[in-house]
Structures are given as structure tokens and as C-alpha cells.
Simulated assay, not measured.
Amino acid sequence: MLLVSKYTAIRRLVNSYLQESLSIYAGYAKNLYIPAKENFVYQSRDKSKVLYISGIALKLAKSQQWDASEIANQIASHFLRNCDKSFRVEVLVPAWIRIQVADTIVATCLQSLVEFAGEQASFFETSITSPILPTTDSVFLVQYAHARCCSLLGLAQRQGLIQIDRNLQIPWLIKDGVSDDKFRCTDVLSRCLIGELVTVLDDLADINHSDMGHWQKAAISISKVFEDFWRSCRIWGEVKINSPELALARLGLVLVTQVILQFLLENKLGVSALREL
């Protein structure tokens, strides 16, 4: 399995492989200049999957007057040869390169947050730069979601369902030994929450995102999706008894949400991440 460093955002990882594929392609094309540090991918609006789209083939075709579809197919071919089963790559009309990230990669990224849940400040390469602001209604929504995460995690710990420490391993994936490992949480709300969390992790690795308004919008988006998730995705009762691994996987999403919301509140919005309201 392609491992994801705890310091690597998924978009950055995808872009690095795309850049490598572009370099291979450029080796066959004459007079082709490709910026080494440019970002060529963006996350799809469909948050139920971790998808990235690139229009680099269209850009190259316009500047070089070549066939965009042919360029896209060659780049996609190089990408797949380098990455095996870590990504699913296809070319869409007219020449968009669509890259779906395997659940194993996303699970590794989420697990890195679980393992470093008590070290948020050192996990992200940023620090508090914003002034302390009075709490607004929208920020209170984020504080409420964070407090709800803490409440659910506290209850789970008291019941012995989870113990939050560096050794905690969340059973994110179903391993059947036959097909590719898939997420245990298959419902749409869980997948949408995962998509929102990945988006924020991508943005945290992007130094161009420094506007407080952007981070407030991101925190509110996660909070709203989380509220839908915890109201609909049961953890206790029959799920805890009959599907303890599913209950633990859902608690893993609660923990990752708590880590990210705490960081956004304290380090980006300059307000307290309240543990109870």
C-alpha cells in the first residue's frame, strides 16, 4: 500500500504523482515547459468520494496546439503505471483527467490524525496569526460541533468503547483478502464528512490559504456535515452490540473531526475550542 506521511495532504500527494507523470510525458515531447511547483489538481465538488480533477491536458494543448485528448490519455497512462492500485484514473471529455483516491490512502491519512490527536499544534505546520475575535453565531456553530465531538468521545471512553492514545487503531477498512480494501463506513453522510475533512487538510497544506473568512467557511461546512452525520449514523445500541468495528470507525470520524475543528478554532479563528457548552 502506498503510505501517506502524516505531513502530506492528499491533494499534494496526487499533485506530486501528476507532476512526475508530466515529467515523463515531457521527456517524449520537445519544447514542452512544465512548472515544477505548480498545482495541477483540484478536488471535485462531489464530496461523497475523494476525487481530484486536472485540466492540465487542455492547458498544454492550447499552448502547444496539440490534441488535448491524446495528451490526457498519455499522462493518465504514465500516472497509472506509477501508482498501481492507489488511484483510479480516467479521462473525461474533452480532456479532463479524473483521479479517484483509493480508500486505503484516505484511511492512512485519517489514522495519522488519530495517532497524533494529542499533538495538533505540532501536526500542522501553522500557528496562531489571527487576532482574538468575539464569538459570532456562525463561530458558535463550530464551537457547538466541537463540544458535541468531545461529549461523544467522552461517553465512548466511559463505556470502554474507545481509549484515545497514540496506540489507538481505528478499523477504517474492511479487509476481505479478495478485492481492494474498502471503507467500513459506506453511508453517504460518513463519506461526505470524510470528503470535507480531506478538503480542509488539503487547504491547511496550502500556504496560499491565509484568509480568516476562508477558514471560517471551512469550519462551518465541516460542522454542518458533522451534525448530519452524528444524528443519522448510530454508534450505540444495536450498532455497538452487533457491529462494534463499525461503531469504532464512526467514533474515529468523530475524533478526526474534533482534532480538525479544535485546530481551526484555536489556530485559525482565534477563539476557544470549548469542550462543553
Results as ranks from 00 to 15, higher is better:
Val254Met: 06
Ile164Ala: 05
Ala219Tyr: 01
Arg234Leu: 10
Asp180Met: 12
Asp203His: 15
Asp181Trp: 07
Ile162Gln: 07
Leu201Thr: 02
Leu161Phe: 09
Arg250Pro: 10
Arg250Ser: 10
Val239Ser: 14
Val178Gln: 14
Gly213Asn: 03
Asp165Met: 05
Leu189Lys: 07
Glu245Gly: 06
Gly252Tyr: 01
Pro171His: 14
Glu227Arg: 10
Leu204Glu: 03
Lys240Ile: 00
Gln169Asn: 10
Asp202Lys: 00
Ile207Leu: 15
Lys240Asn: 10
Ile162Asn: 03
Asp206Gly: 06
Thr186Phe: 08
Ile194Tyr: 04
Asp206Trp: 10
Asp202Phe: 06
Val225Thr: 12
Asp206Ala: 12
Ile194Thr: 06
Val225Ile: 10
Leu168Cys: 08
Lys182Phe: 07
Gln216Gly: 12
Arg166Ser: 14
Ile162Asp: 00
Trp172Met: 14
Phe226Gly: 08
Asp180Glu: 15
Gly252Arg: 01
Ile170His: 01
Leu255Cys: 03
Gly213Asp: 09
Leu251Asp: 04
Arg191Asn: 08
Val256Lys: 00
Arg250Asn: 04
Ser179Arg: 07
Ala219Asn: 09
Leu168His: 07
Gly177Thr: 02
Ala218Cys: 10
Val239Trp: 05
Asp180Arg: 12
Ile162Ala: 13
Ile220Glu: 02
Ser232Asp: 15
Arg184Gly: 02
Gly195Phe: 00
Leu246Thr: 06
Ser223His: 04
Leu201Asp: 05
Leu248Trp: 01
Met212Thr: 11
Asp228Asn: 12
Gly160Tyr: 12
Leu201Lys: 05
Val225Gly: 09
Leu204Ser: 01
Gly177Asn: 09
Leu248Lys: 13
Gly177Ile: 15
Asp176Lys: 11
Leu255Arg: 13
Asp202Pro: 05
Cys233Gln: 13
Asp176Pro: 14
Asp181Glu: 06
Glu227Gly: 07
Ile235Met: 04
Ile174Cys: 05
Arg250Trp: 02
Ser179His: 09
Phe226Thr: 02
Phe229Pro: 04
Trp215Asp: 08
Ser221Tyr: 07
Phe183Met: 15
Lys182Ser: 09
Gly213Glu: 12
Gly177Val: 08
Val225Gln: 15
Ile162Pro: 04
Gly160Val: 03
Ile194Val: 10
Arg231Met: 05
Arg191His: 05
Cys185Thr: 08
His214Lys: 02
Pro171Ser: 06
Ser232Pro: 02
Thr186His: 09
Phe183Thr: 07
Ala218Lys: 05
Gln216Lys: 14
